[in-house]
Design a protein around this nucleic acid. Sequence first.
DNA 1: GATGAATGAGAATTCATTCAT
DNA 2: GATGAATGAATTCTCATTCAT
Lengths: 195, 195, 195, 195
Amino acid sequence: MGGATAALQGTTKAQIQSVALRLFAERGYDSTSMREIAEALSFTKAALYYHFASKEDIVRSLIDTMLSQVGELVDWAHSQTQGPGLRHEVLTRWIDIMQGQGLRMFRFINANHRVMREISTDKSGMEEHLRALYEILTPPGAGLADQLRARLSLMVVNMAGLASNGLEASEEDILAAARQISMELAPKDPTGDPA
Amino acid sequence: MGGATAALQGTTKAQIQSVALRLFAERGYDSTSMREIAEALSFTKAALYYHFASKEDIVRSLIDTMLSQVGELVDWAHSQTQGPGLRHEVLTRWIDIMQGQGLRMFRFINANHRVMREISTDKSGMEEHLRALYEILTPPGAGLADQLRARLSLMVVNMAGLASNGLEASEEDILAAARQISMELAPKDPTGDPA
Amino acid sequence: MGGATAALQGTTKAQIQSVALRLFAERGYDSTSMREIAEALSFTKAALYYHFASKEDIVRSLIDTMLSQVGELVDWAHSQTQGPGLRHEVLTRWIDIMQGQGLRMFRFINANHRVMREISTDKSGMEEHLRALYEILTPPGAGLADQLRARLSLMVVNMAGLASNGLEASEEDILAAARQISMELAPKDPTGDPA
Amino acid sequence: MGGATAALQGTTKAQIQSVALRLFAERGYDSTSMREIAEALSFTKAALYYHFASKEDIVRSLIDTMLSQVGELVDWAHSQTQGPGLRHEVLTRWIDIMQGQGLRMFRFINANHRVMREISTDKSGMEEHLRALYEILTPPGAGLADQLRARLSLMVVNMAGLASNGLEASEEDILAAARQISMELAPKDPTGDPA
DNA sequence: GATGAATGAGAATTCATTCAT
DNA sequence: GATGAATGAATTCTCATTCAT
């Protein structure tokens, strides 16, 4: 936690990040203008530029926030002994991150590939982090289907938002179901277990 | 099949649709300008406006194309006898649609919720179609998790595109794996279980 | 009459003139596009260009129509013996012209000074015609006020359209009243005043 | 007086209003582009948009200015005792307003009915104001001709601009003559005259 | 006589950004 | 820390016009 999470509370900078993330996720990066962000905050546009050098800079800061959260998860995972138990725990923590700002971030990332591609943040960092998580979630010697399963199990929480459209159930219940499906989907260890 | 697919070949209108879909899927709707579409076709902007009344109109036509394909699937499914076999076949046909323009369309829809929301096409039609498919894929009396599974099984093909980033495998193999996972994920009939 | 009046009936060219005049008077010249004229006639734009070389050309033909009507009035007036009786009769005939297409033409001219100025038709003709009418309506040796009266007496019929907004009376009654006011307004002969 | 008139001096907003009114009156609303207004002011187009939300917004502000002037006249007239003397004074004040920006405004209104109709300012206000003036200028029990006379007497000052085209006289003299004609035209009180 | 397709110029408007204060 | 004013480039879209058929 620490820096990253705290960054989205209190300070002016943090207010901007929070509102910008909401708008970017709702309307898309390109369709959200600095004017709209400023108005949503009852600031002037120029005030935004006092805190952030550019619109892209806001995105960068947003990504960094998420990046550090996922980075912490990766670091923690690397410090543990590998195995099915760890995989289970990693998925749980991932899901925890994805709630709160995480879900919004994911929706944002999903809906704004272009900016993500063009932004020259340490975005490779995100890909590395994800690769690391994939490896942890994929048993040694896994086939293609299992590799895909690992990746999809991470995405399920994020898809649940879209998928639950029209379902009559509390957000809580939906996330619980998503969690369960995510676990099922994650590749099983082929380690000689008699089922 | 037929009309809808054929509509994306040959004629000027069709060329525009095809190029626009590619660009919209790649860069997002808002970030793709009419100028860019025109340049990609070596047309003038004004020529686009001769064929389509507006930028939104292009999107509308694109959606209608996909809509009719999914609509045909729903109609076909309704004309069959329900059951596990049908569910399997529906998933197969869905995946077939999603390849070709379908995948692009889905990436587009996923990445451009805002336009989709604002466009006043028979978009409700899409929601109805999806609802119909969900029902067919969901066994009677299914719980929340199974309802979610039905929805996610449809999305898996579309997610596979994202998920396979960085995997060293042919598109063919990836789609085959996605197909398999999609089938596994679809809710199973509770046949014969005493609840 | 003859040519000019007949020109607004029957033939395709005449249909175009009639519809164009209506639209120009309603929405103004610049705000009426060739597309709108074409649509109002269920033609294609290109068809308009078969009959008229340009948009300005339509206006020119319209002006010419009115020009010839007023020209005939001037010619007739010049062939009569001057005097108060003639002035009365001229006003009457002027008012007769102004009904029918005339009123529309006037509304058009009033509302589209710019085109009128820029159009290089024999528009000077119109000014000459009006000057001739002014002279006929103005008794010899009239002062500034009477010169203005002569001019305004011609305009009254045209203003009546605007002025009668909100009055509960038939168009017929309004025109009769306008006619009466116009006559009153016209400068009186200083008959018998010792200057 | 006061506020409204002063508003057209000094400030950037006021400069824009002044130049825009001149151009709108000269060339018509539709034929005057934001580029032209900007160039006439040596501004950029975008600068106009900083001060006014849209082209229509400029018109709206212009109308409001005139509206408040006429509104003041109506209010003043309502606070006086009705009668022939008041009618005379109202006409005088009306003519005073119409000079300065007023004449331009009137030429603009006359030549741009379409915009006026479409603009959703408190334009009904103008119609109400005019209705009020008509009532004041019209003696009780007046017939149709007198109702029309009241209306035309207000319009005469505005028509004088058009009507005096080609007259060799100073603007001052023309306005004086127009004033005189306007007064003559205004309906006379039928009080006790033996016809 | 008339059309479908296309064009180049220009319209209104919005945007990210800058900078003096 | 923050604002008001301004800009240059881009956007969507419309228009008068042309031309091969």
